[in-house]
Design a protein around this nucleic acid. Structure first.
Length: 473
RNA sequence: CGGGAAAUAGCACAACUUGGCAGUGCGCUUGGUUUGGGACCAAGAGGUUGCAGGUUCAAAUCCUGUUUUCCCGACCA
C-alpha cells in the first residue's frame, strides 16, 4: 500500500482547485500554450478523448446518424437570423474582421456552435418529407470567448461533437432529443462510471434559441456541479427563421422540427473530478487507454518469459497494456503507474516467480492481490469489471450523500454552504429562481419532476416542480 | 471584466530588498553498479532571466507597457 504522496500533487481535501490542475499536469494530459484559454491536449489526454469518441461515434451511427464537416466561419448576417440565439451568444463570440490584409466587407464569426450553418445547408437540401429525418453530426472545435478558463472544464477553443437533426413531426423531434439525451446518460454511467442527474433546464438556463434543453448534471468530489452534456429541442424556431420548408404527404408546405445535442472534452474534467485522488488519475477500465501496466522487478530470464506470455494473452483478449521495463526503481514505476491511473498493475519479481505468483494492484483502491501465475488473465478480466462497477457505486454513494431535500427557506439558509445539491420545491417563476441564486449563490441545475402538493420555498405559492440547485464550475 | 499572486535551464526554486561573472535540486545525456514504494557513483549537456520599451558605465534586479498562468469574484448556450 502506498504511503508516500506523489510530491507534486496538492492534497484534494486541502485545495481542490490546485489538486485538479496538478493531476491534469502530472498525468501528462495537457500542457498550457501561449494562447490564452487554449490548452494543448497531449497524447495521453487525447487517447482518453479518442476512446470517448469511438464509443460515442458508434452509438450515434447505430442510431442512424452520419458525420459531416461544416465551415468554421459564420458570416455575420447568417448568424443574426435567429434573435434569441444571437442574444445568447453575442457576448462570447470571436469575430474575424480582416483577411489577406484587407478589411472584410462582412465580419466573420468563428462558430461558437453550428446551428445556423446546419440550417443554411438544410434549407437547400430539404424539399420533401422523403428527405427527413436528417440526422447529422460533426466532430469539431468551436470558439467561445470565455473570461476565466480551466483545462477541460472551460476553454476558449472547445473540442466537441454537435449533432443537428431535422424531423417531419414534432413527435419525432422530441423523441430524438430524448434518445440522444439517453445515449449521453448511458455513456456516462456505463463507460465513465459517472452517476448523473438528468432533467430539463429552466427557461432561464436553457440554450439560446431552444424550446427545451435537457441536461446531464454530474456532481464532482467536492459537491460542485458540472454540466456534462445537453440535448435541445428547437421546435420550428430556426426552421421558420431560416425558411426551411418541405412538402409533406398531403402536399402541404411545412417547417421541419429540429434538435441539437453535444458533449465535449469537458467530460475528461468530469472524469478526473469524480474519480481521481491524491496519487493522481484514476480511470474507469472501459475508458482507460491503457488498462494494465506490467511492472517487472529485477532481472531474471523467467521474468522475460513471463512478460512474453502475458503480452500475448493480453493482446489476444484486446486488453490494452504497457510493459514498464524502463531502467527505474520499482518505486518510481509504482508511482508512475498510479499518477497515470492504469486500472490494474501487475507487479512481478523474483519473490513472486519463486512462489509461482504475481501481485495485482487495483488503482482505485490500491489494494494488493496475490494470484497464481497461471490464473493472472482470468483475474485481470474479472478485476477490470469489478473496478468499473465499484467506481460507479462509490461515486453514486458519495453523490447521493450530498443531495439534500430542503423544505423551507430557513433550512436552505442554514445549509446552503454545504457541498452538494439542494432539492427544493419551486413555483416555476424566474423571480424565485433568481432569488435563490442571489441569496445563496446556487444555480438551478435541472428539474427533477412535477410536484403539486407542496409550496415554493421562496414565495410559498403552489409548487410546480421539484428542482436541483447547486454551485457550478 | 474586477481584486490578488506569479513568470529565471524540461520541472521546482535561489539570486531581486541594497543594480556588478546567472546558481542549487530534480530531470536529461554517456558509462558503470543496482532493482518489492520515486536507487547510487562518475563524467557531461542545457540560459536572449516571458516579451517590448525606458533609466544606468552596468539590469534577472529599478520604472512603464504587454502577454501568459494560478487563486478569489462577476460572467458562463
Amino acid at each position: 500500500m502506498a504511503e508516500k504522496k506523489v510530491k507534486n500533487i496538492t492534497s484534494r481535501d486541502q485545495d481542490f482547485g490546485a489538486w485538479y490542475t496538478d493531476v491534469v499536469k502530472e498525468a501528462d494530459l495537457i500542457d498550457y500554450s501561449s494562447v490564452k484559454g487554449s490548452m494543448i491536449i497531449r497524447p495521453y489526454g487525447y487517447a482518453i478523448w479518442e476512446n470517448m469518441v469511438n464509443v460515442l461515434d458508434n452509438m450515434f451511427k447505430e442510431t442512424g446518424h452520419v458525420n459531416v464537416q461544416m465551415p468554421l466561419f459564420i458570416p455575420e448576417s447568417l448568424f443574426n437570423i435567429e434573435k434569441d440565439h444571437v442574444e445568447g451568444f453575442a457576448p462570447e463570440v470571436a469575430v474575424v474582421t480582416e483577411g489577406g490584409n484587407e478589411k472584410l466587407e462582412e465580419k466573420m464569426i468563428i462558430r461558437p456552435t453550428s446551428e445556423v450553418l446546419f440550417c443554411d445547408h438544410y434549407k437547400k437540401i430539404i424539399n420533401s418529407y422523403r428527405d427527413l429525418p436528417l440526422l447529422y453530426n460533426q466532430w469539431c472545435t468551436i470558439v467561445r470567448w470565455e473570461k476565466e478558463t480551466r483545462p477541460f472544464l472551460r476553454s476558449r477553443e472547445i473540442l466537441w461533437q454537435e449533432g443537428h437533426t431535422m424531423h417531419a413531426t414534432e413527435e419525432e423531434a422530441r423523441e430524438e432529443t430524448l434518445r440522444m439525451f439517453k445515449i449521453y446518460e448511458t455513456f456516462q454511467k456505463e463507460y465513465l462510471a459517472i452517476p448523473v442527474i438528468t432533467g430539463k433546464k429552466t427557461e432561464k438556463e436553457k440554450f439560446a434559441g431552444a424550446e427545451e434543453t435537457y441536461t446531464i448534471e454530474a456532481m464532482m468530489y467536492n459537491g460542485i456541479a458540472l454540466q456534462n452534456g445537453t440535448s435541445h429541442y428547437f421546435g420550428q424556431k430556426f426552421s421558420k427563421a431560416f425558411g426551411i420548408e418541405f412538402l409533406d404527404k398531403e402536399n402541404k408546405l411545412v417547417n421541419p422540427y429540429q434538435t441539437s445535442w453535444g458533449v465535449s472534452t469537458r467530460m475528461i474534467g468530469g472524469l478526473i473530478m469524480t474519480h481521481s485522488d491524491d496519487f493522481g488519475l484514476v480511470l474507469p477500465p472501459k475508458i482507460a487507454p491503457t488498462k494494465v501496466a506490467v511492472i517487472p522487478i529485477g532481472n531474471d530470464e523467467r521474468l522475460d518469459l513471463f512478460i512474453e506470455t502475458i503480452k500475448e494473452d493480453l493482446k489476444d483478449l484486446n486488453i490494452t497494456y504497457t510493459i514498464m521495463d524502463l531502467d527505474k526503481s520499482p518505486g518510481y514505476k509504482f508511482a508512475e503507474a498510479e499518477v497515470k491511473g492504469y486500472p490494474i498493475r501487475v507487479e512481478v519479481g523474483n519473490r513472486d516467480l519463486q512462489a509461482g505468483v504475481v501481485t495485482l494492484v487495483r488503482r482505485d483502491t490500491l489494494e494488493k492481490i496475490t494470484v497464481n501465475m497461471n490464473e493472472v488473465i482470468p483475474h485481470i478480466q474479472e478485476l477490470l469489471d469489478l473496478i468499473q462497477d465499484d467506481m460507479y457505486n462509490r461515486a453514486l454513494q458519495r453523490r447521493d450523500a450530498m443531495i439534500y431535500q430542503v423544505d423551507t427557506i430557513e433550512e436552505l439558509r442554514s445549509s446552503y454552504d454545504d457541498p452538494g445539491f439542494f432539492l427544493v420545491n419551486w413555483c416555476g417563476s424566474e423571480k424565485c429562481e433568481n432569488s435563490i441564486r442571489e441569496e445563496f449563490g446556487l444555480k438551478s441545475r435541472c428539474i427533477k419532476d412535477d410536484v403539486t402538493d407542496k409550496k415554493c420555498i421562496v414565495c410559498n405559492s403552489d409548487s410546480k416542480h421539484s428542482i436541483y440547485f447547486g454551485k457550478q464550475y
